[in-house]
Design a protein around this nucleic acid. Structure first.
Lengths: 184, 184
DNA sequence: TGTAATATTCAGACAGGTCTGTTCACTTAT
DNA sequence: ATAAGTGAACAGACCTGTCTGAATATTACA
């Protein structure tokens, strides 16, 4: 399982710095220092490599969010506030390069392309995650608040990526808190 | 000037339906029914064709917004509300395929690529436009509100594109109005 | 421990296709 | 006669995915 992780790590780094389409298989194997046949043994096609990358990134994100949230003992409203702060923090880490499934969806815009479809699934997952937290926090319309938070976070991720240092993540956090207070 | 417009219109349609990178020069000229030399006479490189497309789209958007806004005689707060409704309306038109400069920035992620740089300029332009309206409307912190609206609109554009029919534009409009009321 | 069997990885060539951009001689307008 | 457009070929580079034979690890058994 070591080789697989090494390939995935190299691919992740290239996908996020140069883009997915711009990172050819030859570049990935050169950067990882492996043979092409090895890559194709672990990932029978580039599409499978891409979806594995997307799945991995989502899993890590939710893992990190969950473990950070449970460590705080707090009222339900405070959990929502903590969530906003964690998302801000996450966007501001130097390793952040935008929401992976967003980038993938833009790079593969055709609706029947497997990458686009998988990206849509991951987007729905995120919204469901946020709506669930809004529900347990007692929001009047959890689905509405969940989607508004999704929009804010995705927008902030985009703006911060395109204009680094513009403070978009912090402004989005403040906007999110305003919306939360208005809907509890 | 007719040929130039025809090329630009064909390129626009292909860029927005299939993506920019996925729309090769050969596809564009085939769709437009012209010779390759003709395209390269009007646009010496594909990059120039792309930037022309981005400029054109931005110009048309601001033209439409401005003319729609001045036709309404209203208080300053009402102008901000109208703005939100217009943006929602614009996102919901069937011709909408996401913010062009966003898509371009994602497709060309390297910071020194001319397309990425031009996209950043257009993103700043949008935020300045919204901040200016927030200022004339008397917002307490026009720059903050302008950026929050930018984040909401860009996020809504993304979500609506990835999950059509999810009502993201409408929810973003409501969120925007909440934020506006909170900052006036 | 020693050795044989098995699995993994290697470097590189290859096929068949795509891409941007250039150039050519020929034809059509104005 | 000046300018613009056509069709087609071409260069040089890139792409994904397949395949080969040799080198290297890993495992199993004695």
């Amino acid at each position: 399982m070591k080789m697989r992780d090494k390939i995935l790590a190299t691919a992740t780094s290239l996908f996020e710095s140069r883009g997915i389409q711009a990172s050819g298989v030859d570049t990935i194997i050169a950067e990882a220092g492996i043979a092409k046949a090895t890559l194709y043994k672990h990932f029978p096609s580039k599409n499978l490599l891409i979806t594995s990358y997307l799945r991995e990134k989502s899993d890590r994100f939710y893992e990190w969010l969950n473990s950070s949230l449970v460590s705080k003992k707090a009222t339900s409203l405070e959990i929502l506030i903590s969530l906003c702060e964690l998302v801000e923090q996450w966007i501001m880490t130097p390793e952040f390069h935008g929401l992976p499934f967003h980038i993938a969806a833009v790079e593969f815009p055709e609706p029947d392309h497997p990458i686009n479809q998988y990206s849509a699934v991951l987007a729905v997952e995120l919204q469901g995650y946020l709506s669930k937290i809004a529900a347990t926090a007692g929001a009047k319309d959890p689905e509405a608040l969940g989607q508004q938070l999704t929009i804010l976070f995705e927008g902030a991720a985009l703006v911060e990526r395109l204009s680094p240092g513009s403070g978009a993540a912090s402004r989005a956090k403040n906007a999110a808190i305003t919306l939360i207070r208005a809907s509890i």
